[in-house]
Write a protein that binds this DNA or RNA. Structure first.
Ligand SMILES: [Mn+2]
Ligand SMILES: [Mn+2]
Ligand SMILES: [Zn+2]
Ligand SMILES: [Zn+2]
Lengths: 125, 125
DNA sequence: TAATTATTGCGAATAAATCGCATTTACATG
DNA sequence: CATGTAAATGCGATTTATTCGCAATAATTA
């Protein structure tokens, strides 16, 4: 199952890099110039997650959002971090705030999903 | 919109108290003895959340889970706390681990949803 | 007991995400 | 450059969680 380079993949990744935020399939489909099928967008996003190019956030609206995994300038974002979902502008941003907890090692933690929600700084006028 | 007491509400709440865990509509419908309609279960759960009798957790499976709000013996559970979802036994438990973060007050945080997932202590043999 | 209206049941409607399958296309190889 | 293989895509159908509209039922209060 080798990966191939396609215009679709490039466009989706470019958009996510440019936006700098986590986007839903809906938002991607709305903002992208190309005409890409709904199922294809999901498949592209899922493959990127498998390859650790993107990470997936599930918000309290039950929807999936996807963001590029940055790990250069900000160490905290390479690990588990909080996310903030603004219910007004419906965007999710990766916060540079690490998620910290200590739990008995009888639990095996495979995944961490932390989302704060409310009104973001741009919308809270 | 005054609330009325009904067998249905009682049964749902009793089950959630007894289980001591967060349950999905599906799990509730499966374990409850009464025959309660699907939509009714959701409505009962949503009303309990409005009244702060239950709290709602949205897991990375995109589903909603509901748990009683305990705030007696364990103070931490009265505030925001982590949850753990076991992908093997498909239960969610409220962890007595407080969620801590500091964020610029230009953000208005209305809701906190933090879920760890993996294998719980009972299933990790 | 009767009136009011919250609650319920039922079926249809929404909406997110996935699936099956035929078709297209990226890419390696000769 | 031509060609074979399998990855990627498009399309429509499907699955699944949750909600909605509306008529029927039942809790509560007077
Ligand atoms: Mn992130
Ligand atoms: Mn909880
Ligand atoms: Zn905003
Ligand atoms: Zn378990």
């Amino acid at each position: 199952m080798e990966r191939r380079n396609t215009p679709t993949k490039q466009a989706v990744l470019e958009l996510l890099v440019k936006s700098g935020k986590a986007m839903s399939r809906e938002a991607i489909e709305k903002e992208i110039t190309q005409n890409i099928n709904r199922a294809t967008i999901y498949r592209v996003l899922n493959r990127f997650c498998e390859d650790d190019v993107l990470h997936r956030i599930v918000a309290e609206d039950g929807k999936q959002y996807f963001a590029v995994c940055v790990n250069c300038y900000d160490k905290v974002l390479s690990g588990h971090h909080f996310h903030f979902r603004c219910v007004k502008c419906d965007t999710i941003e990766c916060l540079p705030i690490a998620v910290e907890f200590s739990i008995s090692n009888s639990y095996q933690v495979d995944n961490v999903n932390c989302v704060l929600s409310g009104t973001c700084k741009d919308c809270s006028v």
